[in-house]
Design a protein around this nucleic acid. Structure first.
Lengths: 145, 145
DNA sequence: AATTTTACTTGCATATTGCAAGTGCAAAAA
DNA sequence: TTTTTGCACTTGCAATATGCAAGTAAAATT
């Protein structure tokens, strides 16, 4: 990477640009989708998604997501080989982004499947939808160990 | 690209994944941001953003965004060398995604600048914010020629 | 003790993006 | 009317990011 003398790795100070520098790669939001909607928690489970993320890419994304305080991992108490990945509050706060992406595609492509229920029903009351789902996520992702 | 016999170019039928296949690259959403908030309309203006997109990438993104019916272009009536780019309704419908990205980054990084006014004020009433801004975008991006 | 499972790592191929220079045409200047 | 400048791209090649297949180490299972 070669930008300027003091390289921050960011393209600009625009919030949108910075957000994309953090989660705007090809895979991060799909990993977060799995943590949010599919209940996947371990490396192997995350690797088993339909999109078939390459193992080295998964590993590298998990590291940077953790560095950016979007997820955290804890050893699985039932199997010490394994780690379990959870969303932080910052990660949970990406829910609206993901829901809006989903609703957008659903609106314009009928072939798109929803990944989680109850979103179309709430089309007119997104705030309600965000709140309800955030509440659920807080429950399942709050500090475990 | 080599996926399977009948390659659709998409990773799965998940709406989120499909949305990211469409606008999940490094630049598309930044181009849309400029069309939405900065009033930039021509190739040269779009190229002049802080993030310094490479000219060949800009050209290629504009083509695929147009193919995907997210933007459209028309000759500039005042200068026949130039085209002006506008958002379609489908493009305008990406506004919530972009706003949520912006608000997310603004919440977690104080160094992030907003790109457009009035968003923090509406933090608690996003639906209102979406509606108001969509209305404005419809005005400035509806068929011109 | 041997095999399987799990979370990665490593090496190399392919794809996407970045950079610098160039092209063609229309507008503006001389 | 000729020249110069401006604008929307294209082209060739370098650098970075992603994809694939195989490998490794440690813990669980048999």
């Amino acid at each position: 990477m070669k930008r300027n003398i003091v390289d921050t790795g960011r393209r600009s100070h625009c919030a949108i640009s910075m957000a994309l520098d953090t989660v705007g790669d090809k895979w991060s939001l799909l990993i977060l989708r799995d943590l949010m909607f599919t209940g996947k928690r371990s490396y192997g489970e995350l690797q088993s998604s339909d999109e078939k993320i390459a193992t080295n890419i998964l590993a590298s994304r998990l590291v940077t997501l953790e560095k950016n305080d979007i997820i955290y991992k804890q050893p699985d108490p039932t199997d010490s080989r394994r780690y379990l990945y959870y969303l932080t509050e910052k990660g949970i706060d990406l829910l609206p982004v993901i829901i809006e992406l989903m609703q957008w595609m659903s609106k314009y492509n009928p072939a798109a499947s929803a990944c989680t229920a109850n979103t179309t029903a709430y089309k007119k009351d997104r705030v309600m939808l965000y709140k309800e789902m955030t509440r659920r996520l807080r429950k399942s992702h709050s500090q475990q160990g």
